[in-house]
Each structure stands twice: as C-alpha cells, then as structure tokens.
Design a protein around this nucleic acid. Sequence first.
DNA 1: AATGTCAAGTCAACCTGCCTGACCATCTGG
DNA 2: CCAGATGGTCAGGCAGGTTGACTTGACATT
Lengths: 170, 170
Amino acid sequence: MARSSIRAQDLERFSRTNIGQPLTEIAKDFQRRALARFAGHGHKGLQPAHTAVITNLGLEGTRLTDLARRAAMTKQGMGQLVDELEHLGYVERTPDPTDNRAKIVRFTRRGRRLMSHGIELGEAIQGEYARLIGRRHLKTLRDTLEDLAHALRESAAPPRPARTRRRSGV
Amino acid sequence: MARSSIRAQDLERFSRTNIGQPLTEIAKDFQRRALARFAGHGHKGLQPAHTAVITNLGLEGTRLTDLARRAAMTKQGMGQLVDELEHLGYVERTPDPTDNRAKIVRFTRRGRRLMSHGIELGEAIQGEYARLIGRRHLKTLRDTLEDLAHALRESAAPPRPARTRRRSGV
DNA sequence: AATGTCAAGTCAACCTGCCTGACCATCTGG
DNA sequence: CCAGATGGTCAGGCAGGTTGACTTGACATT
C-alpha cells in the first residue's frame, strides 16, 4: 500500500531525528515528579504553570512586567499566576516606592520555604534520573541542555537591545 | 530580611539543578520551529498538539484507542485531534474489518507527504542546533534524551509480566 | 438464544493556561 | 502641562486537554 512517498525505514529515521518527542516527554515527567513531591511536603495547589513565576522571581522581589517578560508571556497571564500564588500564600504584592503604578511581587516566608524544598526536590529527581542513565550521562545532559537553552535565548534576543525594536523576528 | 531559609547562592544552586527549565524551553523552541517550517511548506493549520497523532500513527493505520494509549491521553482527547487532522486532510477514518466497533486512522496521501517533510524539517532544525552547540554535543544530547525517555517509559510501564496479549501489532 | 461484562468510540460539560483587546493610572520628556 | 509610553487590571476567547455518561458491538458463559 502506498509506497509512493514514505516507507518504514523513513519512519525510523523520523523518530531518530525527532528530538522534540523525548524532550517534551522528559520535561513533563520532571514536572509531574516535582509537583508530586511538593504535594508530599504540604505544598498542595501548586500547578505546572506556577514554575514560570517561581523560577523568575528574584529574592528582592520583581515587578509583574519583568516577570512576564522573563517568562516570555503576557502581563495578564503572569498576573493570573501571581494571583493564584498569592492566594496560596507563596508571594505577596507590595507597592514599588519608586513608581506608584508598579507593584513588586516577592516571596513570603512560606514562599522561601517552598524554594528550599524545590532545591532538594530537584536534586532528588535528578538522582532518580541518574539511576536510570548513570551519573555522568546525566551531568553531560544537564550541561548540554543549559548550553543549548542559553544559545537559543541569545540568538532569539534582539541584536540591539538599546533600540525600541518592535520584535520583528519570528 | 529573612535570612532564615534561602539565600542568593541557593538560588544559583536551584537554577543549576532545575533541569526542567531548559528542557521545556528547548522543547517549545523545537515545536515552534517545526510548525513555522511546516507552514512554509504549505501545511497550515497544524498545531503542536497534532504531533501526538502524527508521531504515534503507524504506516498501516492505527486504532483511535491505541493512539490514545500511546500518547498517554484519553480517547476523547485523541478523537478531537484526529477530527482536526481529518478536516485538514492528513488522516482518514476507515472501518476495521476485524471489529465493527473500531475505526482505523490512517494517513492520506497528503498525510504521507507531511511525514516526508517532517523528516527533512527535523534534520534541518537539528542542523541549526548543531550550529549553536556543535555537532558532537548535539548527537550526545539526542542519544541521551532517547535513552532517558526510553528508561522512563520502561520504569513507568506496569510491571505486568506478558499476559497473552493479542493484537500487539506495530 | 439470553445475559453480563468488556472494549471502541462519541457527546457534553468543564478546567487550565495561556492570549487579545480595552481600559485606567501613573510616569516622563519636550 | 500635555502626549505618549509604561505598569497593571478587567473581560472574553481559544487551545488542549479532562471526567462522566452513553451507545454499539464483541465475546464468554450459560
């Protein structure tokens, strides 16, 4: 049937070159494990999307707009995530003394405990991964992922940050 | 303030151990590039979710239920994705001659052309990545990702020892 | 043949995780 | 002091799923 355009060996080739699939699989697995462990530590109600806030929130607090920009999403979307984390008691909004329009999002004490747990959890999960593929392979995997992600951010960034460039790139 | 639980060096440690962040970043980037290239080849209307169908659909066709199981989602969710791809002309539903309840989802000619393009696209995108981190690093990255994804699937699979499973085709 | 159970697929309703558009308040430069 | 940019919110919509209830057909037992 239909030998015209694609054959079994092509499918093999496809799955070999489709790096996106294992990438998303592993990313989902990591999130699932992290949330399960957080829930085990009493942090219930956390959702995958909240990591966009947590991983971009500095210790001294960060403006909503900056959070949105770092996470590459809209102010509204980020605002909703911050609302949820605020209700859960992990962050709070305080007025920015230098700009009355702005509010600074910062961790509460509970939020800082969350971060401490997050560090332990991340290491624990990586221990599980290391058990599957070996410690050395995991380390090179992590390093290469960081390098690639960094290179992607660089190449996607506007080449002239000074100019109010209208985001022409795809 | 609040020196109790977390400090700046801890944040560094967190981002170093948070393998999930670069993982999801890169996965999204790959999807974005793939869809953009597909659109450039005349395949408009494709969406990220459709890969769940495309990457799990065998050449001879696959049942909806099998697709759903392989993609780890519900039959209903998969049914909607198949509906969309059917309207776009990439797949078709044909009755299963061995079971009147079932329908077999299979590629149309247009769908097979899509797969051919997909192979080229995947290789092209990986070429771009190789330009960023080097060909050798990319290869080890891909291999390690495959290994880890495979190991995760194995360890997540029910430890059920080979019951007389009929219809384990493809 | 009647029956009970299970598998394949669909319909409807809902939820999450964003996005766009419209808007107000405030800041800033000329 | 006013125009325009910026920080943030409110409202609505769309994508990509979920659960639950259901229909149809397969099949094993009786």
